Computed example of a mutant assay.
Amino acid sequence: MDTLNLSSKKRETYQVRLKYSPLWESALGIAAITNTPLLNTLEKPMSYWSSIKESISMNLLEHLEYVEKNNTWKALLQILHTKDFTDIEDLTNYIEQANSEDLRFICLPFVGRKFEDIRRQAIQENKTAIKELKKITSDNPFFPDYIQFICSVEINELKNHLIFVMQSWFEEVVKPNAKELTQILHNDYQAKKKMLTKMTAEEFVAWATGGVSYVPEPSVHYVLLIPQYIYRPWNIEADLDGTKVFYYPVSNESIYPNDKYMPDNFLVAKVKALGDEVRLKIVKLLFEQDRSLHDITDQLELGKSTVHHHLKQLRAAKIVEIKNSKYSLKLNSIDSLSKEIDSYLNK
């Protein structure tokens, strides 16, 4: 049945917030080096990660093994969201002084307001609540085991581990290049802050993250964007109460600020993807409507393997995505292209 819309109310959207700190980079570095299956997909080569493992202390290596076993990098990220820490000492003092229940609660992942009572009960070692929280998060590859760990680990063991691994990683890995790293993060923060005034919230999030289409959710009022260098080219997504978080990869321009001719890596990917006759035809076909692979091959009269190759490149550039088993054009990605080029030409 058709609906006659007489409402004057516009669809609500979220507000975008930006933050940066080398402390986020530290926690994400710990997450990266302990995510062994993902290491070879990161921008930094395997030789970089091998050299870190060869240069750091044995004690830190042992704690990284503990991180890999228990995913305590998640606890570090959760804690970093509690306040704006001024430095590593501020963070470690906070962990040391936190009481047992508060620290466990902070470390547990947020899974929705309606489950906050279960989250509270879980830290009391309520077996039914822990079981329920694990069930709620069962589609996540590590949350259930992580929840069990946080609810049962001896609190001083957890505190000592978190303090040592974060402090040691910062001192041994981040601090030697902290000035350069902080400048890169600051450059990206400033560039994003400037562009935020020129785009809608949804358009901006898609641009900053290289194509993440995040539509407003009823319980999410803010999107927090945190630039990171160590996990390029990946975006990392997290949930807080009322906030969606994206730790997004910094741009090429932020890494090479003195080269005014250095284009943004996402812009390069888009332009390369669009610089082909077949791919432009596909874009126009998908602008008209979502289509299956079969539909596209019929329209273009090309082989499936050829069309699939072009679609793969368009997807890599975050111009095309798959929705309900069909290929769909990401309109935000196309709409923001002129603003991205304008920003590049006038920087």
Rank of each mutant, 00 (worst) to 15 (best):
109 P>H: 07
49 W>I: 02
142 F>P: 05
203 E>G: 13
285 L>R: 06
70 N>T: 10
114 K>E: 15
154 E>N: 08
36 T>N: 10
275 G>F: 07
98 A>I: 06
77 L>M: 11
243 T>N: 01
249 P>Y: 02
171 E>M: 06
268 V>M: 05
191 A>N: 11
237 E>S: 11
228 Q>Y: 01
308 H>T: 14
81 H>D: 08
311 L>Y: 01
274 L>E: 02
196 L>Q: 14
69 K>H: 08
155 I>R: 05
313 Q>H: 15
92 T>A: 04
18 L>C: 03
220 V>Q: 06
153 V>R: 03
220 V>S: 03
257 P>R: 00
340 E>R: 08
88 I>C: 06
110 F>W: 08
47 S>T: 14
213 S>F: 08
156 N>D: 14
55 S>M: 08
46 M>Q: 12
342 D>E: 15
25 E>C: 03
49 W>S: 06
274 L>Q: 00
330 K>Q: 13
260 K>Y: 12
277 E>R: 10
7 S>P: 02
104 R>Y: 07
278 V>K: 07
16 V>C: 01
183 Q>M: 13
311 L>V: 04
267 L>N: 00
146 Y>P: 01
228 Q>N: 15
154 E>A: 10
9 K>V: 10
140 N>I: 02
62 E>R: 12
243 T>Q: 04
157 E>F: 14
310 H>N: 05
169 W>I: 00
323 K>C: 05
200 T>G: 15
8 S>I: 07
44 K>E: 09
222 Y>K: 14
243 T>E: 10
297 T>Q: 09
160 N>P: 08
313 Q>F: 13
94 Y>G: 04
314 L>V: 06
133 L>I: 05
67 V>W: 06
298 D>R: 13
54 E>M: 09
329 L>V: 03
159 K>R: 13
198 K>S: 15
193 K>R: 15
297 T>R: 09
15 Q>D: 10
156 N>A: 08
142 F>W: 14
184 I>Q: 01
45 P>H: 07
240 L>Y: 06
254 S>D: 01
330 K>P: 07
287 F>A: 15
72 T>W: 00
133 L>Y: 02
303 G>F: 09
159 K>S: 04
15 Q>E: 11
152 S>H: 12
231 Y>K: 11
119 R>W: 03
167 Q>D: 14
204 F>P: 00
276 D>Q: 09
335 D>G: 07
300 L>Y: 05
341 I>D: 00
188 D>S: 11
315 R>P: 07
122 A>V: 02
280 L>T: 13
283 V>A: 03
108 L>G: 04
226 I>V: 15
140 N>W: 07
103 L>R: 03
280 L>N: 09
220 V>K: 07
197 T>C: 10
53 K>M: 13
191 A>S: 14
86 T>H: 14
225 L>M: 09
209 T>C: 03
308 H>K: 13
30 I>Y: 00
282 I>D: 08
261 Y>D: 12
264 D>V: 02
186 H>T: 14
217 E>N: 07
29 G>M: 11
162 L>I: 04
92 T>M: 00
316 A>M: 10
313 Q>T: 09
211 G>D: 06
136 I>C: 00
11 R>L: 13
